[in-house]
């Protein structure tokens, strides 16, 4: 087992918004330049701190979407209509604005690119974000781990990274991408529409290798249901790592 690293002090850094990418009507990717960024593992997150003029401050955790790339960092933010932070990040924050953040954080829900074991990634809604970082890192690092992403989303309107996922699926023999639509598929969609169930998971994921690592991320109900399905298909609990957000937090 890998030794734990002694970590230095986690300092707040000031990033600058370099660019934005609109992903869907309610999700935006913030492309940040963060001087002093120490690098990260895919799956890790940052804490973002917003401070009002009267001194009130609040923090939120956001998964990193990008592969390590110097001082560049991408966060994909899903806007929650009743949210305190996400409306600001997706609608107000503008190019060249500063943003206070610290990271990388989290050694549990993280994938190490030197690890060659097969990887099964299952994401619901914006839970795909840290998994996308793993896919991107797998490609950027030229790793050899066979990887499959199963991404559950409501409809084509809520699908993040659509064009990039299509390119990845077409261009990499040992990197598979399957989208599961829970409410409506694209107009020419021949596949099934509905929540991921045991049969569909078996069809998509095929035979699991004994050493497959599973990363599952999404709203709580989604993660718990998928974890149960995986265990029902003979995956050991220790092979499954999860990250969940609150009951109203996603679009799975």
């Amino acid at each position: 087992m890998a030794r734990a690293a002694v970590l230095g002090r986690l300092n707040w850094l000031v990033g600058q918004l370099a660019d934005v990418r609109e992903e869907t009507a309610t999700a935006r990717t913030l492309i940040l330049d963060v001087p002093g960024w120490p690098g990260h593992l895919p799956g890790q997150h940052v804490d973002v701190r917003l401070t009002a003029e009267d001194g009130y401050s609040t923090e939120r955790s956001y998964s990193i979407a990008s592969a390590p790339d110097g001082s560049r960092l991408e966060l994909t933010i899903q806007r929650l209509e009743d949210g305190e932070v996400s409306p600001y990040l997706t609608m107000v924050l503008s190019r060249r604005d500063p943003l206070e953040l610290r990271g990388p954080i989290g050694g549990y829900f993280a994938w190490r690119p030197a690890d060659s074991r097969p990887v099964l990634l299952i994401g619901g809604g914006s839970g795909v974000v840290p998994l996308m970082a793993m896919v991107r890192t797998r490609i950027a690092s030229g790793g050899t781990a066979p990887m499959r992403l199963i991404y559950s989303t409501r409809s084509p309107d809520t699908l993040l990274y659509a064009a990039e996922l299509e390119r990845i699926a077409a261009g990499h023999a040992d990197l598979d991408v399957d989208v599961v639509y829970t409410r409506a598929g694209p107009p020419d969609w021949a596949g099934r529409v509905g929540r991921l169930d045991a049969r569909q998971l078996r069809e998509l994921a095929g035979q699991h290798a004994a050493d497959t690592q599973c990363f599952v991320c999404g709203p709580t109900g989604f993660v718990e249901s998928v974890a149960r399905l995986l265990i029902g298909q003979g995956i050991e609990a220790q092979q499954i790592r999860t990250e969940r957000f609150g009951p109203s937090g996603g679009t799975a």
């Binding site: 609150g246 009951p247 937090g249």
Partner: peptide, 16 residues
């Protein structure tokens, strides 16, 4: 509380 996240989100505060 009706809203919660999981233990991953404690990573930052515990690193203090």
């Amino acid at each position: 509380s009706e809203t919660w996240t999981d233990g991953n989100s404690l990573g930052g505060p515990l690193r203090d």
